[in-house]
Design a protein around this nucleic acid. Structure first.
Lengths: 239, 239
DNA sequence: TATCACCAAGTTGCCTGACAAGTTGATTGT
DNA sequence: ACAATCAACTTGTCAGGCAACTTGGTGATA
């Protein structure tokens, strides 16, 4: 079985290396907002690569909004505030402090979202959340960890915020963080039964608070859920 | 005076257009995680561009972690959870609903951060926050809007969280959102005096709560500050 | 029949060279 | 002093080529 971790690491492409170097120069203040970058030819000579590689590297930074270019004039570090990306740099998911830190962030975003959902949910929203809650129960009764159902449950909640920014950030964090938590749970076949039932009880508490339009209780339920998720992660990692 | 808004919009580069198209295909599920992308040559023919443009476009998606490539084998949609970027797509800062939505997000993140700062701050942290608070007062006394000092104040708070993820996301949101708020305040010379004093009073309340290690009060103070910031924005925009 | 080695075809990674489109600054003419 | 022109430069795109790697098919051997 070939898994990603068994593959020989070929390292980043030249374009990626150059992009990182330039990005570091910008982050370190060696290239200031508004400042002109060296020409493509100069960068190529500086790094000993060809011009298309430089074009690709600079293109990556343009995609991030860190750099803007004008044909004939040059490429410039974008003014502060133009960057359109937030990068979540996690070395791996084995450092407990790192995991704890990122779960704190998830907690802030998700508890805020759950609070808004409690304030704003419509009957349709509530029905959708109920549907996903029931689907997860069905999955648990079948002996499955309910991964897809867990995703859908949280997604239904964040849709009830009626705020696309919460939805997008929550999706992103879901993909990066919750997915890790769920994978850990799924990989722990022996204990998943009782632990997944805890998860469902916490989901139920979240649902109840949203149903009752009780925003503070919803916030607290979401925080409790994630606090417990962090604790459960410790259990998964011990097994 | 040439300002960015006066420049003729030349639209995105071909590479950026292709990158967006492919990114949309992935987001819409037309290209699934693990699925192989068409070859560079096929994509070039599909979009009627040259292969280097395709390479640059795919390179942008690789930079985002959305796509991985293996030399000789092809490029593949990355498995879920590999994407390392969150993109904040704001058309512009003129849509009130959009601004309101993004401030809600800022509120969730910043109130969470302020709460953590209240729980975790050291004496050194507190001294730094005090320094920035005083610097902002000095700026106000001078009749300036205190933009840099405002940045530094909030940065000092988020450093006290001892959580790099909060710091990074807060930095990002600061650059994208708070910067807009500050610019609006700075551009409103006639009213800035009294409104900036309100800002400083709210900063003082945040500081007091952090000093007292009163996490719930810190959260509330941060929320109040941002809620008022949204209200002040309405004032700026009427003038 | 199964396994291994070899090879051709295809694909990504990188380079060279060329030209189009646009910018900038210097020069010239009014 | 101002406007027009032009040369030099820079980004944007393309064409072509070769290196490095992958994949699948074929033939040889045990």
């Amino acid at each position: 079985m070939v898994s990603p971790s068994n593959l020989i690491d070929r390292g980043p492409s030249l374009a990626e290396v150059v992009a990182r170097r330039l990005s570091e120069d910008i982050a370190a203040g060696r290239l200031k907002p508004g400042e002109k970058l060296p020409t493509e030819q100069q960068i190529a000579e500086t790094f000993g690569v060809s011009r298309p590689i430089v074009r690709e590297a600079v293109g990556r930074l343009k995609h991030d909004g860190l750099v803007v270019s004008r044909q004939g004039a040059g490429a410039f570090v974008a003014e502060s505030g133009q960057a359109s990306v937030f990068r979540l740099q996690v070395a791996d998911f084995t450092d407990r402090d790192e995991i704890h830190g990122i779960i704190e962030l998830l907690m802030a975003v998700e508890s805020g979202a759950t609070e808004l959902a409690a304030m704003r949910r419509t009957d349709e929203d509530l029905a959708m959340i109920q549907t996903q809650l029931d689907a997860m129960q069905t999955s648990i009764d079948r002996g499955d960890p309910g991964v897809d159902e867990d995703v859908a449950f949280h997604r239904a909640i964040v849709e009830a915020t009626k705020n696309p920014f919460f939805r997008d950030l929550s999706d992103f964090l879901d993909r990066r963080v919750r997915a890790f938590i769920r994978a850990a749970r799924s990989n722990t076949a022996r204990r998943q039964g009782s632990l997944t039932r805890s998860v469902q009880e916490e989901h139920q508490a979240i649902f109840d608070a949203i149903r009752d339009k009780d925003a503070p209780r919803a916030r607290l339920a979401a925080e409790t859920h994630l606090r417990n998720a962090a604790d459960r992660l410790a259990v998964y990692q011990l097994s």
